[in-house]
């Protein structure tokens, strides 16, 4: 195996470890079995995005998301009025798959509005947090694009895996290969709004 990559067996060990952590923390990740006996890890997350400011990125949105949720608890009626006028509910579905070609995990995702409409690629790019914007402007077409989901055959967005091994090669040394997924996901997830609670890192250490 090249530096930074993992074998499929190591990958599954790491996924199982990751799901065990998830069950202790937020239980948001599950394993999906496809019709032809293949598997992948999946998580669904609902974001409440501002429509006032179309340029807002996932960073701002997440903050807004939390604020609104708190508001909702206080006053449901007020939330609903606001909800109808200036926010948009977008459901993100994240899949983690193993790429045998690259020997690394790959993050696939789709994002649908409440009406069931798929977020366009331009919209997905727009929502990438500012810290990654420079890279996005230089190489958007080799960063996030649409691709056929290798196990479902349907269109999904994905983060190109060609630099993942390099990224992981330079990440802090993994004393336990089972920590690979946590380390990888905390590095690439935030690009598309996927943030791992700190507890994942803490549980890895303990």
């Amino acid at each position: 195996m090249a530096a930074g990559s993992i074998s499929e067996d190591e990958y599954w060990d790491s996924i199982i470890f990751f799901l065990t952590l998830s069950s202790k923390i937020d239980s948001k990740w599950t394993i999906v079995d496809t019709k032809d006996g293949r598997r992948f890890a999946k998580k669904t997350e609902v974001f409440i995005l501002s429509t006032e400011n179309k340029e807002s990125t996932m960073n701002d949105d997440v903050i807004r998301n939390t604020e609104l949720m708190e508001e909702q608890e206080e006053d449901t009626a007020a939330f609903q009025v606001r909800g109808n006028s200036d926010v948009e509910v977008v459901t993100y579905e994240y899949h983690i798959l193993y790429s045998p070609s690259y020997g690394v995990p790959v993050l696939y995702f789709n994002a649908h509005t409440q009406g069931g409409k798929l977020l366009a690629l331009e919209e997905v790019w727009k929502r990438v947090p500012d810290v990654y914007k420079e890279r996005l402007s230089e190489e958007r077409w080799t960063f996030i694009t649409q691709q056929e989901h290798p196990l479902l055959g349907r269109p999904f967005y994905y983060l190109h895996p060609c630099h993942t091994a390099d990224l992981m090669k330079n990440s802090p040394v993994l004393t336990d290969k089972r920590h690979y997924i946590v380390s990888w996901l905390s590095a690439v997830g935030p690009v598309v709004g996927l943030k791992l609670p700190l507890e994942y890192g803490k549980l890895c250490v303990s």
Binding site: T145, Q147, H160
Partner: peptide, 15 residues
């Protein structure tokens, strides 16, 4: 997949 321009084809081809 959506194909908004030839950039999408180039991106797919090079990947």
């Amino acid at each position: 997949l959506h194909c908004v321009s030839k950039d999408a084809v180039e991106s797919h081809f090079m990947s």
